[in-house]
């Protein structure tokens, strides 16, 4: 009887099959629930109609332009935030006085919800790309900065002092001692920032009306094109999954040399 809990792979069934069963079941539910009248068809169209709307959307130029606009705003905002976060993190992290001075300010500014800046962004940039960038940068910057600060704090003092005794220049110390230590943290920061940036890009488009997928969702909602709206939402979800996947594989590839990725084989 006690073996029942530790069910082996044989008892579990094929993991791939089970993995497919989940999404397939969900699709079936969305297909059937409106058809048998469990939910109103006007609110939740059957999966097949959402799929058809998705195909129609994919045939229009508007969709691809919107997708491109969302992705470019995401990439540009993320790149700016990562660059600023890494530089600021290394500078603040390696000077103890600066770190002590800025700690309270960082702790205060970080939890400020970036959506609070929406009205300001509207006034400053209207419905341009600038609005989206402002929100994306603000939200993503803190994720990177905080991780870089953790990373810099994690540098082995002995290694750092050794480099100093060997008369490494300040630049060489950063490049060869600090940077490799901080790199895993930087990647964690980038991974977190990448998903936050997508959320904020879509939000800005949805709420402010900056060009992109979010605005298309708002347009579809306003014109009561419900299947199209669901189709676009599915696209944003797929984008989110892809970004997560990309960030994770990128991290694993680029950090293959690092212990935290290699696992505990070394022990």
């Amino acid at each position: 009887m006690t073996t029942a809990r530790r069910d082996g792979p044989a008892r579990l069934g094929n993991p791939v099959l089970l993995g497919i069963a989940g999404p397939a079941g969900l699709l079936l539910l969305i297909e059937l629930a409106p058809r048998i009248g469990l939910v109103d068809e006007r609110y939740l169209p059957p999966a097949s109609r959402i799929g058809a709307a998705l195909v129609t959307e994919a045939g229009t130029g508007v969709f691809w332009t919107a997708l491109w606009e969302t992705l470019s705003a995401w990439a540009l905002g993320l790149a700016l935030a990562v660059a600023a976060g890494v530089v600021a993190g290394i500078v603040i992290g390696s000077v103890p006085v600066l770190r002590a001075l800025t700690a309270s300010t960082v702790e205060f500014l970080r939890p400020i919800p970036s959506v609070a800046l929406i009205p300001l962004a509207v006034l400053l940039y209207g419905t341009d790309l600038g609005s989206t960038l402002m929100l994306v940068c603000y939200a993503a910057f803190w994720q990177v900065l905080v991780q870089v600060l953790y990373g810099v704090a994690d540098v082995d003092p002995v290694a750092f002092e050794t480099a100093r005794s060997f008369r490494f220049s300040a630049w060489a110390r950063i490049r060869y001692v600090l940077w490799p230590t901080a790199l895993p943290y930087v990647f964690t920061g980038i991974r977190l920032a990448a998903s936050v940036a997508l959320v904020l890009a879509i939000t800005a488009e949805l709420v402010i009306g900056a060009p992109g997928l979010g605005r298309e969702i708002a347009v579809a909602q306003a014109s009561e094109a419900v299947p199209t709206m669901y189709a676009l939402i599915v696209v944003t979800g797929v984008l989110g999954v892809l970004i997560n996947l990309l960030a994770r594989t990128g991290e694993r590839r680029l950090l293959a040399w690092h212990q935290s990725v290699r696992g505990e084989v070394a022990l």
């Binding site: 959320v199 939000t203 979010g214 969702i217 708002a218 709206m229 997560n244």
Partner: peptide, 9 residues
Amino acid sequence: AVPPPVLVP
């Protein structure tokens, strides 16, 4: 992975 704000509509 779905950005939560799109749930509003």
